[in-house]
């Protein structure tokens, strides 16, 4: 382990705003978003790409920010949970999660919302099996899966 980290300049557009930061090459994207940009809505839980808490949109596709290096996102366009609402107007998926109790403790919710939003952008009227298959990578330890599925169905109908 060297004491002086190799640093890398990273320029990203997050939620429509451009940021430039100099970070160690080993900085993960989730740490970069949380600690270098101060956008703490994105969570890290499992740290190995399995649980979905760190889900963000990277150049138009959802990705696991905990197993992505920040250096690889140089020049990328990113959307995090903070960029999902339009000002004070919540996104239909956010509204549906509130109205249908799609969360309990809330730790997994930013990732759930990012994944559900991407699902509806890919497939505006998903069947229940399609919702389950897409969302299987987003774990909820409060066991709120039924309400999450109901929330996504409601958001699809609201569109």
């Amino acid at each position: 382990m060297t004491t002086t980290p190799v640093r890398q300049s990273v320029t990203v557009t997050v939620n429509g705003q451009e940021y430039v930061r100099e970070v160690p090459t080993y900085r993960t994207l989730v740490d970069f978003i949380r600690y270098d940009l101060g956008l703490t809505g994105t969570k890290e839980a499992c740290s190995v790409g399995v649980c979905g808490a760190c889900t963000i949109e990277l150049d138009g596709r959802i990705a696991a920010s905990c197993i992505t290096l920040a250096a690889r996102a140089d020049g990328a366009t990113i959307t995090t949970i903070e960029g999902v609402a339009d000002g004070d107007n919540l996104h239909p998926v956010q509204e549906a999660f509130i109205n249908h109790g799609g969360f309990q403790c809330g730790a997994c919710t930013p990732g759930q919302i990012m994944a559900a939003k991407a699902l509806l952008e890919t497939n505006p009227s998903p069947t229940e099996p399609e919702i389950k298959e897409w969302m299987m990578g987003n774990l909820c330890r409060c066991t709120g899966y039924y309400q999450i599925i109901e929330s996504i169905q409601a958001a699809a109908e609201a569109k």
Binding site: G49, G52, L58, R61, A63, A64, M136, G137
Partner: peptide
């Protein structure tokens, strides 16, 4: 393979 989030990348 894994989940869509992984296959995307």
């Amino acid at each position: 393979v894994a989940t869509v989030r992984i296959r995307n990348v």
